[in-house]
Design a protein around this nucleic acid. Structure first.
Lengths: 238, 238
DNA sequence: CCCCGAAAGTTAACGGTGTTAGCAATTGCT
DNA sequence: AGCAATTGCTAACACCGTTAACTTTCGGGG
């Protein structure tokens, strides 16, 4: 029970983790190639050359599997965003934020099914326990954007409203507690939520195909909106 | 074949229409009470005291039924918006638009499942023929907002960008053709799309529960955004 | 008025789904 | 070497959409 702590259940864990990963990989492939309705326990098992009940050794059920897939996608998106940010290491935060937002749109358009799984509905099938896995990975994603906004705020360019609704303050404080690192001003969190809402709308409406009726190429609208957002954040550079 | 045009197949049609309506009513109830995953052919038939194959006399399949339900919900939403507008008949268009936007949010929050069906859809079940029924009813809904923006534009308050992207112009012209009544300036359509995108983001992010992590009561944020939108539309009154 | 044919609704069946129970086999650790 | 945990299987149940073939109902034209 005590010795061999380093390799403790070493091989077991390794092969198990690989199985967990392969399940997610297969589910992801089905999601991409055949849409959200195709990511099914039986289909995943079939692809992997096993049977559906076997998957229950790895995930408690379909819901849990989807949730794990969701988490991994949040992580992938977060990585894509940080990569985009670090592709311009010397740039000022405004420019970096711009690139991050562009990367969000790019990722959404390149992976519409994945984006839909993350942001379309609370869940495809009506049920999510309110505060669970999505929290952690979701924050790792949102944190990338929030962090850049904090940097912008440090430069004194953001001028958030000073008259925050009292009801908000209590809630924003709760959000702040969830964040690691140095405390973030409440006003910045307010600005973050407002800007994120706007960014979400712009990207989602396009990725969900709700603009197909009007525009074949909504990029100009996106860039215009991006200008607007960054202007609101006090970023003058373009 | 020719005579009795007024009551032509009179009773038949009436009872059939009532059946069509009852199916939609039942599906709606299941959607509301048990979520989107519960609106099922068999469940609807069960609720109505019949069997699933019987429904095929009324709808070609599950997809068609959902599409019909979607259309009826678009109509209901459009009616709710026009009602909200007409509740302030003497108000200037800016005020009316404000009330319409508020009603949109109110409706979305009061009917989250319905809202999800209308606006989170293209994904969920992998299949929607791109340009079909949703067009008509969808426009009846969007037209309410567009119409008010046209009125605002007539007052000369909207100052849209004069340098429209050339690629846009062709597409916006197509949109304009879909609209009945007098021709709408392309710039107004541009502003409509931009504002609708923003409005959608604000309402959807809240209705889909993506703000639960941060705010219990996002109404102040919504009102702030609404102010912003209407200011952008040149409406000074509050 | 009656009868016919269209419309409505039924049962049976096929293939798909998530999920559970129980059993067999592999395999790492002591 | 043997124990026990882990893994995967088959069988089964309850759902789902959809089709085929049959029966019943009933409005309207002769």
């Amino acid at each position: 029970m005590s010795s061999t702590a380093g390799t403790r259940t070493g091989r077991r864990h390794r092969v198990r983790d690989e199985a967990l990963a392969e399940i997610l990989r297969t589910g992801r492939r089905l999601l991409v190639e055949e849409g959200p309705g195709a990511v099914t326990l039986r289909a995943i098992a079939r692809e992997m050359g096993m049977t559906a009940p076997g998957l229950y050794r790895y995930y408690a059920g379909h819901r849990d599997l989807i949730q794990a897939l969701t988490s991994s996608l949040y992580d992938e998106l977060a990585t894509a965003l940080t990569d985009a940010r670090d592709r311009h290491p010397a740039a000022e935060p405004g420019r970096q934020l711009r690139e991050v937002c562009r990367e969000l749109r790019h990722w959404a358009l390149a992976h519409p099914n994945e984006f839909g799984l993350l942001f379309a509905k609370p869940v495809t099938d009506a049920d999510t326990t309110p505060g669970t896995v999505a929290h952690d990975s979701g924050w790792r994603f949102g944190g990338v954007i929030l962090e850049l906004m904090v940097q912008l705020w440090r430069r004194g360019t953001i001028h958030p409203p000073t008259d925050l609704d009292p009801a908000w303050v209590r809630q924003l404080e709760e959000v702040r507690e969830h964040l690691s690192g140095e405390p973030v001003p409440l006003e910045v969190i307010y600005v973050f939520v407002a800007c994120w809402t706007r960014l979400y709308g712009t990207v989602a409406v396009e990725a969900f195909g709700h603009l197909d009726f009007a525009l074949a190429d909504p990029e100009p609208l996106f860039e215009h909106t991006l200008d607007d957002i960054l202007t609101a954040l006090g970023d003058t550079a373009r």
